[in-house]
Simulated scan of single mutants.
Amino acid sequence: MTFAVGDVVAERTVHLTRESLVRYAGASGDFNPIHYRDDVAAQVGLPGVLAHGMLTMGIASSVVVAALGDVARIVDYGVRFTKPVVVDPVAGADVTVVATVGAIADDVARIDLKVTHGETTVLAKAQLRVAL
């Protein structure tokens, strides 16, 4: 696998629904009601039901893993959560991930992830390091 700085290695939009959130809650064990109940989200001052942060983070990394396949060896992954993904009860929410090679050093590529919901960046400093 060869990369050059600036290469886009993957791009995908994932559609989330309230059902997606319930399924993730079951898989992760995170049953915080802000992820599935509008009334609770409103009581704590949120704009609506939110996708789990770790779900958003997982979606972002999965885009790279799917693109690189069996050759992907992630050695490090980090993000900073900046804005929530509000999942509308009818329309759901789209999360878009663009993965670009940001740097290459010592047989490791740094993949920079741009993760957005609409025009809003939801993960900042989202970077994977992949062994080449």
Rank of each mutant, 00 (worst) to 15 (best):
R37D: 15
V101Q: 12
A10P: 05
T56W: 03
V79I: 12
S62H: 13
P84M: 03
K114R: 15
E119R: 13
I34T: 08
K114T: 14
A109S: 11
G48L: 04
T17R: 00
F3P: 06
M57Q: 13
T13S: 11
V115M: 06
Q127C: 12
A91E: 15
D106C: 12
A60E: 05
Y77M: 04
I34R: 06
R18Q: 10
L68T: 03
L21M: 02
T17E: 05
V98S: 07
Q127E: 13
L68N: 05
F3A: 07
V40W: 00
G102P: 05
V63D: 09
R73S: 12
G29A: 03
L68W: 05
T17S: 10
G48N: 05
G69F: 07
D30Y: 06
V8Y: 07
L128A: 02
A66E: 15
L46P: 02
A103K: 09
R80M: 03
I104N: 10
Y77N: 03
S61C: 10
V130L: 04
V40S: 05
G45C: 06
A25D: 03
T100W: 07
G45T: 07
A67D: 08
A103Y: 08
V40Y: 00
V75R: 11
D70V: 12
P89C: 09
L128E: 03
F81Y: 06
H117R: 14
V101P: 10
K114V: 14
A67L: 07
V95N: 07
K83D: 15
G45Q: 01
I59K: 01
V90H: 12
V98F: 01
V71H: 14
P89H: 07
H35R: 00
P33Q: 06
E19N: 11
V14W: 09
R73Q: 14
A10N: 02
F81T: 02
R110D: 15
T13Q: 09
G53Y: 02
T120S: 15
V85A: 02
V87P: 07
D76Y: 14
V71W: 03
N32G: 06
V122F: 06
G92Q: 02
I111N: 06
V115R: 02
A4V: 12
V95I: 07
M1K: 11
T96S: 11
L113Y: 05
G92L: 08
D106Y: 12
I104H: 10
A105F: 10
T120V: 15
A67F: 06
V22T: 15
V95S: 03
G102W: 01
M57W: 10
A131R: 14
G102Q: 09
L50C: 01
T82F: 00
H117N: 15
P84G: 01
